[in-house]
């Protein structure tokens, strides 16, 4: 069982959350078909630290970025999706 520290709701049991996908599997809206296939279907599937999108489905419903170890299940960071994506957007502007 994992305890996930939701930035909005505090530490909650992981059954309140749903795994979405890994952070590298988010499809750009203007992706070419080959890129879309690669992003949607090809995974690193790491044995170790991974960055994943989870949703606090049975809580505040926010999308969160978890930095999580896929063997120990240790969660080293939980960041709101909006905050996690804000930096690249600003630097790209």
């Amino acid at each position: 069982m994992m305890l996930i520290a939701c930035p909005h709701c505090g530490p909650r049991a992981h059954v309140e959350f749903d795994y979405g996908r890994t952070l590298d599997a988010i499809l750009p809206l203007d992706a070419a078909p080959e890129q879309a296939a690669a992003v949607l279907y090809a995974r690193d599937n790491p044995r170790g630290v991974s960055q994943e999108l989870w949703q606090h489905t049975h809580g505040c419903r926010a999308w969160l970025v978890l930095t999580r170890h896929t063997v120990s299940h240790e969660i080293s960071a939980v960041v709101p999706w909006v905050a996690a994506t804000a930096a690249p957007r600003e630097s790209g502007a």
Binding site: M1, M2, A13, V15, S50, E52, T70, V71, H73
Partner: peptide, 11 residues
């Protein structure tokens, strides 16, 4: 959820 732990959750 992704895991290689071979160890499941109690729920």
């Amino acid at each position: 959820y992704p895991t290689y732990s071979q160890r499941g959750s109690p729920h």
